[in-house]
Amino acid sequence: MANITLRVNGSVQTVDVDPSTPLLYILRNDLGLQGPHFGCGLGQCGACTVIINGAAVRSCVTPCSAVKGEITTLEGLAQGGTLHPVQRAWIEEQVPQCGFCQNGQILNAKVLLDRNRNPTDAEIRQSMVGVLCRCMTYYRVQAAIKRAATSMAAAGTASAKGGVA
């Protein structure tokens, strides 16, 4: 066991765990977060995605001791009680079915839009390909990404700049 210090959604937390423990279990079981989900534990589905240093990271295969940057989870996406444009687009488009995978869909979409404000259909498919949904909400996820891109462009604000990750 060892003390591991993590910066998560703007706060600093220290836990005493085996340093090889995947980040996912710490976030869920020690820090009480409900956004990141266990889907496969193999890095294959994206349900456990968190954002670290602007990148989408699969927390189920990331040892907690390897994490250096600030971690943003789904809970940390809204700023000051205001939902991120991606989250708003998700509600407007009524994307989720069961919703279990949507943590991964939303955070990967956010990272995509931070890097590419106006992705083409092909770029969306390409960048989201490894984020699985067994309710098959892909069609609406893709529509919501385009909707978010439009609203972010209209707002003229760079979520990428102002973003926390």
Partner: peptide
């Protein structure tokens, strides 16, 4: 009408069965 369960699935506030402690 919009589904009432969707906002909590989008902002991370939903407590799922996997979250029971």
């Amino acid at each position: 009408l919009e589904r009432y369960d969707i906002p909590a699935k989008v902002d991370g506030s939903l407590k799922w069965a996997v979250d029971v402690k």
